[in-house]
Simulated scan of single mutants.
Amino acid sequence: MPVALITGASAGLGAEFARQLAAKRADLVLVARSADDLEQLATRLRAEYGVAAEVIVADLAVEADVARVAARISDAEDPIDLLINNAGFGLPLQFADNDIDDEVRHLRVHVEASMRLMHAGIRAMRGRGGRIINVASVAGFISRSTYSACKSWLIGFSRWANAEYIRDGVTVTAVCPGFTHTTFHERMGLAPGHEGIPTLMWLNADDVVREGLRDAARGRAVSIPSLRYKIIVALTRVLPASLTSGVARRGRV
């Protein structure tokens, strides 16, 4: 059976990736900070789908924890076929109002940890094949603080890596959802509906994951779930940055 390693697997899109992959009979390596939530998810998936579910408790803002996860990816005796870099979080305030240590931790999780795990994944997968999915955001196409910058980096690097390593049998896909019904906004301390975003703009996690997995299987470098967000991203290429960044201030994608 293929083996998928998922970071940020305890909730939200990470848990949905785990569920859909388990339904396809993939074995799992689940990574997150919350041991209890991970064990509960692993137990449920083992019972429901009969798959193996390994648990690694790790904080990807901590270098030693990132190294432990990278070592698991590099294990040639029990190889990883699909790496999903999903771990991440948002900050509730504008850049100048946030604590700089929080901003640095945010950068480490979104960019440095993803880069280190991609490095381990590509080195391990070259020649035998494999897939990497980086969960980015449509925010990566819009100018808005460090969250946008981090997601933009993921998108740009995924595009390059997909073109560079596809010849070695490794594909890299940036999945870029818009506003999605998960616990992401609540963990930032924002009440549901706080952003004032129209109902039409919200996506369901199962649809985002299903389309992301399909695009990754097709070897696409960028996946933008839903037609409405594809149109929005196309508009960002022609609209002035001052306009798109102003709209983005209404909420966090």
Rank of each mutant, 00 (worst) to 15 (best):
M188T: 01
M188W: 00
D207Y: 12
S223N: 08
V209K: 04
G193N: 03
W202H: 13
A216N: 13
T199I: 05
R214A: 15
L203A: 14
A191P: 00
A234Y: 01
A191H: 05
V209E: 04
L203F: 04
R210M: 09
G212W: 13
L235P: 01
L213A: 13
G212V: 10
L203W: 06
L227H: 11
R210A: 15
T236Y: 01
Y229L: 06
L200V: 09
L190K: 12
L213S: 13
R218K: 15
D215K: 14
S226I: 08
L190S: 03
L235N: 05
V222K: 01
I197R: 11
V222A: 04
A216H: 07
Y229F: 09
E186K: 07
L213F: 12
G189F: 00
E186W: 00
R228W: 04
R187Y: 01
D207T: 13
I224N: 10
I224L: 11
T199Q: 14
L200W: 12
T199N: 09
V208E: 11
L227I: 13
M201K: 08
A191T: 10
P192E: 06
L203K: 07
R220G: 02
W202R: 06
E195L: 09
P192L: 03
P192Y: 06
G189P: 00
P192C: 03
S223A: 14
D215Q: 14
V222F: 02
I231W: 08
P198G: 11
